[in-house]
């Protein structure tokens, strides 16, 4: 490693100051505010505030709904990440084939990422809604199975996972595509000459070489499903039926903005923050060991 040396001792600090300032104002300050709010019980308009210590946390950790929302979050995040990464890699692999109109095809597969999650939610509603969706209407002709996620919790969960994964798959494709194109063809050709089939080539060469990108996408997809998945759920199920799709970040919103219970909402966001920090740290500790950086 080469060390750069600044003559002026203040200059390096000055240069990183904008980044530090942004981090403090937009990350540390709000995080600290949530932490402070989580220790208080506040009336909606903020005119009556009383310190309650850890009461907000105690209450959360003694209600079954909160644990249900944690469980929902894990199901949701694993589903979105698995489908998002799997489909992303699959489509990216297809997009490296030599076909006509490759550029147009590559552009098209990235499109879903350009659609705002609430809009994606609305699109899915038009396809899947039991009252006015196209798919249940067609299904009605071939089967008597009622595709009713307004009452069936697991169907609702599958639907929001699918919709969220779909909005995010373009992002994954872009990264996988870049990763695949960066793999030197000479290595693959050498492997072919040595008699390695497509599966063997993928397992022994492509996947290890893609592992830094896969790891990066794993972390980003998980964080995205924990935090960024709000739009789809808000548009499609609003956490229903009976709380079956109520993930933690949606509960933070619902209790804070509809319930106007800011103390509990802040406590939930603190817990969510702790959970995500822990998860990310764990991933770096254990999963990253298996990543090969070239």
């Amino acid at each position: 490693m080469k060390r750069s040396v600044f003559r002026n001792r203040a200059l390096p600090y000055l240069l990183v100051l904008p980044q530090i300032a942004v981090t403090v104002v937009f990350f540390f300050w709000p995080a600290f505010e949530s932490l402070r709010l989580s220790l208080f019980r506040t009336s909606p308009f903020g005119d009556k505030t009383s310190f309650v210590g850890l009461e907000n946390f105690r209450k959360l950790l003694t209600t079954p709904e909160y644990y249900q929302s944690i469980a929902n979050t894990f199901v949701f995040a694993s589903g979105v990440t698995a489908i998002g990464l799997g489909a992303g890699l699959f489509v990216a692999a297809l997009a490296t084939q030599k076909i006509r109109g490759l550029a147009a095809y590559r552009t098209a597969v990235l499109w879903p990422y350009g659609i705002a999650p609430p809009i994606a939610g609305i699109i899915f509603l038009f396809i899947f809604h039991p009252s006015y969706g196209v798919l249940p209407y067609w299904l009605g002709f071939v089967t008597s199975y009622e595709f009713n996620w307004l009452l069936k919790g697991w169907v609702a969960m599958a639907l929001v996972i699918l919709a969220t994964a779909w909005t995010h798959v373009g992002y994954n494709i872009a990264f996988f595509l870049a990763g695949l194109l960066a793999i030197p063809t000479s290595v693959l050709e050498a492997a072919s000459v040595d008699g390695a089939g497509a599966i063997r080539r993928f397992r022994s060469i492509i996947f290890p070489l893609l592992s830094p990108i896969t790891f990066y996408l794993l972390v980003v997809n998980l964080i995205f499903s924990f935090f960024g998945s709000f739009g789809v759920i808000h548009a499609v199920t609003q956490g229903g039926p009976g709380g079956a799709t109520e993930i933690m970040v949606f509960k933070v919103y619902k209790d804070g903005f509809i319930g106007l219970n800011l103390g509990s909402s802040a406590a939930q966001s603190v817990l969510l923050m702790i959970l995500v920090i822990t998860l990310t740290a764990l991933q770096f500790r254990f999963v990253e060991k298996r990543v090969t950086y070239s």
Partner: peptide, 21 residues
Amino acid sequence: GNFAQIREAIEGEMENVFAGK
């Protein structure tokens, strides 16, 4: 108080009843 949140809780449970849970 917080009727919006109560309504939300009630409707969640109505769904559980109509789903047969």
